[in-house]
Simulated scan of single mutants.
Amino acid sequence: MKRTHKLLASILLGLSGLLLTGCGEDPKPKPEAFLRLDYQLGTLKHYESGCPFVFDYNSFATVKEQGNCNLTLEYPKMKATVYLTYKPVNNNLPLLLRDAEKLTYDHVIKADNINAQPFVNEHAKVFGMFSQVGGDAATNAQFYVTDSTRHFLTASLYFYAKPNYDSVMPAAAYIKEDMRNLMETLHWRQ
């Protein structure tokens, strides 16, 4: 009887060991962690010069005038720049629109997707398109705005690094919101 108890105890112990070791998942290496980048919200500053437009922009950006009402909004902490290019409309609106669309869709080779959203501010006579480019494209966001008769302005976001969407995504999302704000606060001067 002692022998039966010993045999039964060893069988139960063996089964318990199998159940305990057989129920766990295979060990897997943990993925590399990504640094979480949170950027502070800046205050809004008003940009006004001799150019035919005014807008609000983030105080963390530095505005630099490039001549002929072309500007850059530089984000040194994020190593990024938004390039603003102004062109007067002189019976050339279809060409300006085509060029702006071409600039966006030139990135289709590297882009995972392009999401274009129309923008309309009837009161300020500001009409345009905001495009978000997903993937490892050179630019992550672009827009153009016009009053359809006199003014045309484009904006493009570029980083000072080789495009890697996963790495620049937090900064790109932050600056895209700034670009939307710029677009929404833009008014043409008379």
Rank of each mutant, 00 (worst) to 15 (best):
Q40I: 00
L41R: 04
L41T: 10
G42A: 15
G42C: 09
T43W: 02
L44A: 14
L44V: 10
K45A: 03
K45I: 06
H46T: 05
H46Y: 08
Y47R: 06
S49T: 10
C51G: 12
P52A: 02
V54L: 14
V54S: 13
V54N: 14
V54R: 12
F55G: 06
F55T: 04
F55A: 04
D56W: 00
N58A: 12
S59F: 02
S59I: 03
F60C: 00
F60N: 01
T62I: 09
V63L: 14
E65S: 07
E65D: 09
N68G: 05
N68I: 08
N70A: 03
L71W: 03
T72P: 01
E74A: 12
E74V: 14
P76A: 15
K77R: 11
K77S: 11
M78Q: 12
K79W: 05
A80I: 08
T81E: 07
T85C: 06
Y86C: 05
Y86D: 05
K87Y: 12
K87T: 14
P94V: 14
L95H: 09
L95T: 13
L95R: 07
R98D: 13
A100K: 03
A100P: 01
A100V: 10
A100F: 06
E101P: 02
E101R: 10
E101S: 09
K102S: 04
L103R: 15
L103T: 11
L103D: 11
T104D: 01
H107M: 01
H107C: 00
H107A: 05
V108D: 10
I109M: 09
I109R: 15
A111G: 00
D112Q: 08
N115S: 15
A116T: 13
A116M: 15
A116F: 06
Q117P: 03
P118K: 03
P118A: 02
V120E: 07
V120K: 03
E122Y: 13
H123K: 13
A124I: 04
K125N: 08
F127I: 01
G128E: 12
G128S: 13
M129W: 03
M129C: 03
F130R: 08
S131I: 13
